[in-house]
Design a protein around this nucleic acid. Structure first.
Lengths: 249, 249
DNA sequence: CGCAATATTGACACTCTTCAAACTTAGTGG
DNA sequence: CCACTAAGTTTGAAGAGTGTCAATATTGCG
């Protein structure tokens, strides 16, 4: 039981990876019972991260990947002149730290946007395990290539789309990912500020706010601070001009 | 000698990976002699790709990675509405196809911008080999995470920088990569059109052209069609306002 | 060498940003 | 529990930076 902090209630100790509903999002499918048990040994579960805290920061040595169990993170990149850009928002079942997998230090910073729980996957031990469980390596290849494709989709958005299209793509993406996790696809509470949305989409916060207001005036959505309700999904979709992929991550 | 086309002159057969000057860019360092020999067996070398031809296209099944041996490629992403974005330019020693590594089909299209030669690395066989050569897996992790970091640097550029900064970052990046390959850092021939540069940087071709002209008027560069000479590297660097990472890839 | 593709340049339109002020929400301490 | 403060949001007006359209010049491939 090494590495499992003792403030976790006893009954939680039994709910490791094999029982985790998010398993198929962060571990390969089709693992044998004993393989799963091996992984379960290695993974440190349910580490709490408070709102505003960093899970890791750019430049810190890389030791582990982290799977989001509950809560919501942003990852940011910091330019030398202080400009910071949000490179992603991450929710339950997603893996953080892939951009450091091959290297020695983290490239981005991961900040909790609300109180979160993560599971830690120490890379050294995963690496050893992957000799016994070849599908593990394959799984990380898949996750990393998915991350590359995701980033390229965002590049397409940043390079080609106008404010309305960007916001529409953002809302649909959130909707879809929340739905995939069993939440409502039509109403949700944004965890990030307008400024963080803007940074992610390459827009200023005022532009984000204005565009939300316009969407509301047009009857597409209802905005109440961070609470968003999508009133006309099809109309929002049509804003994309059949453009960028909404899918993925 | 399977897989090696017979139009390759005999003396080339001896110049496989162990002799290739680009080796350290596409294969892990510190391989033993016999490991290198094994890889050499698997890699199909010096496949010619003519200017304008696709090395692979988005949607095609993924079988192999490709190392650029000579020449110059662009990779593009195609949105459903026909909009296409250039996601990267790739020169000798760089690996293409990483975005498909974990999946079954290519996500982007790779087009040769001049007559090229590539080496093919069949993934199946690499995968088998990596059981005997663990550093191979690690190497691909590294390459993929580098690709993620590169893409995120571009996201930062697309999200935050203005036309002048984008062009300056582009020129410095080209200069640096060419220099690393033994070419001049100050004068080079662009292989891509203004439109392709613009697509990559999220600008219209007219803006690229205008910005080049302004740089020239300011004495920063000399432009003669696709021939670019960097006259004042420091001044170009200072345009970046100490922003985005120019490094990488 | 000739033609199509590419590049340059200008004038104008438009989107987004900037600056500023007012307003709302959430969190803190009396 | 309410007052207070800081952070976040909304909205307006003006301006900068790119995009668009169009005409002309140039390049480079066949």
């Amino acid at each position: 039981m090494t590495g499992i902090p003792d403030f976790i209630p006893l009954h939680e100790l039994r709910s490791g990876c094999p029982a985790c509903s998010l398993r198929e999002l962060c571990l390969p499918l089709g693992l044998a019972r004993d393989e799963m048990a091996q992984l379960d040994e290695v993974i440190r579960q349910r580490i709490p991260v408070k709102r505003g805290e960093a899970l890791f920061r750019a430049g810190q040595p890389f030791h582990s990947l982290y799977a989001v169990r509950t809560g919501f993170f942003k990852t940011t990149l910091l330019a030398e002149d202080g400009r910071e850009q949000v490179t992603g928002f991450h929710m339950a079942g997603e893996l953080l730290g892939l951009d450091a997998l091959g290297g020695t230090q983290h490239a981005c910073t991961a900040i909790a946007l609300e109180d979160c729980e993560v599971c830690e996957l120490p890379f050294q031990q995963l690496d050893s395990l992957s000799r016994e469980i070849p599908s593990l390596t394959r799984h990380f290849y898949k996750l990393m290539s998915r991350e590359i494709v995701r980033d390229q989709g965002l590049m397409l958005l940043l390079g080609n789309m106008r404010a309305e299209e960007r916001l529409a793509a953002f809302l649909l993406n959130m909707s879809q990912r929340l739905e995939a996790r069993g939440f409502s696809a039509k109403g949700f509470h944004l965890r990030m500020t307008r400024e963080e949305i803007g940074s992610y989409l390459g827009l200023k916060l005022e532009t984000v706010s204005r565009t939300f207001s316009r969407f509301q005036a047009d009857g597409l959505i209802k905005v109440q601070g961070k609470q968003i309700d999508l009133l006309d999904l099809n109309a929002i979709r049509s804003l994309l001009g059949a453009c960028a992929p909404t899918e993925s991550h």
